[in-house]
Design a protein around this nucleic acid. Sequence first.
DNA 1: ACTATATAGTTAGGTACCATACTATATCTA
DNA 2: TAGATATAGTATGGTACCTAACTATATAGT
Lengths: 176, 176
Amino acid sequence: MTNLFHDSADMQLIPTLAQTKRQIERYGLDVDAQAVLVAARLMTAGAKLGNAADIHFARFGLSTGRYRLLADLEDNEGEELPSQLAENLGVTRATVTGLIDILERDGLVSRRSSSIDGRQKSVLLTELGAKKLRDMASEHFARLETMVGSLTIEERTLFLDLLGRVTRGISALTDE
Amino acid sequence: MTNLFHDSADMQLIPTLAQTKRQIERYGLDVDAQAVLVAARLMTAGAKLGNAADIHFARFGLSTGRYRLLADLEDNEGEELPSQLAENLGVTRATVTGLIDILERDGLVSRRSSSIDGRQKSVLLTELGAKKLRDMASEHFARLETMVGSLTIEERTLFLDLLGRVTRGISALTDE
DNA sequence: ACTATATAGTTAGGTACCATACTATATCTA
DNA sequence: TAGATATAGTATGGTACCTAACTATATAGT
C-alpha cells in the first residue's frame, strides 16, 4: 500500500493548531502554541520532504545521501577523502562508508589507497558517475524549483533566514 | 563516535549558496539558486531536527513516532483505531503496527478487539501512558519553545505560512 | 446465498541513517 | 626508539519508516 496521504495538500496540517492548543491547555502550561507548531510541523515537513526526495532520487538509481555525496565530489574536482565527505555532508564516517559501498558497486565512484598516508583511501568520481550527474541535472533542478515555486524571490530569502535561526535552536532539544 | 557537527551552528550552511551556484552554472541551467537552497536546507534541517527529536524523546523512553502516537491518542479520548492513527500521524498502517507493538510491550497502550467489526482492534491509552505524557509535558514543551525562541511571534506565523506553502509543493518531486 | 471485492491489521523484507567498537596506520612524547 | 595516543576507514548492530504481500473479516453484486 502506498501512503498517498503524504502527497495530499493537507500534509501541512499535522499537527493542527487546535490540537496543539488543547495539548498545552490540558496541562496548564504557559507556552506559545505557534512555537510548538513551528517545531512540530518542521519535523513533519522535513520527514516528508526526505521521503519524497528519496522517491525522486530513486528515479536515477540513487538515494538522497548518495546523490549528495556525488554532488559534493563533483564540487571538489572529483576526488575527496571519506572523512572530508562526512564533514561536508554532515553525516558520520560510518554512513559515508555505506554510501561509498553502494556507489562503488554501481560504478559511480572508485576507491584509491593513498601512497602518502596508508590509512587514507580517497574516493574518486568515475566518468559514469559524472555522466549520471549531468544526465539528471536538468530534471532534478527543475523539480526543486517547481517545489519552491509558490514563494517569491524575497520570500525565499526570508524563509532561509528564519529556517537558519530555527535550525540553530535545535540544540535546545539535545542540550544538558 | 558522536557526530558533533550536527549540533554546531554551521549546520544551516549545508549546502552553501556558493556550492549551489557552482552546481547550477556547471550545467548552464536557468534556475534560482535560492529556490534550490530552500529545498536542500529544508531537507537538511528536517533530518537534523528529526534526529535531535529522537534524542530528546529517548530521555523519556520514547521515539518521535511513539510520542506522536500517544499524544494523538490522548487527543482522542484515549482510544483510536490503528487506521485512524495512521491517517492522523501521516504514516502507514504498517508503521503504526510497529509503534503499537513497542508501546504495548512497555505498557503505555493496550489493544482491544472490537465486538462490532471483527477486523478492528482499537488501541487504548493506559494509565501508565497518560502518566508518561503528564510527566514529560513541562520539559517537552519548554524545550520546543526554547528551540523556536529566536523567532518573534509574528515571525512564527510567517514561518508557518511559508513552510506550509513549500510543503504543498513537495509533490513536485514525486509527480508523474 | 455465493462469489467477488474491499478493508483492517499484521508480517516480511528493504533502505537509510546512526552510535559504538574495531583494525590499521601515523604521530607525539619521553 | 619504544610506548601511548590520535586518526582513517570499516564492521556490527540498532531504530525508524517504507512497500508489498498475507490473513481474516465485512460488504456488494448477481
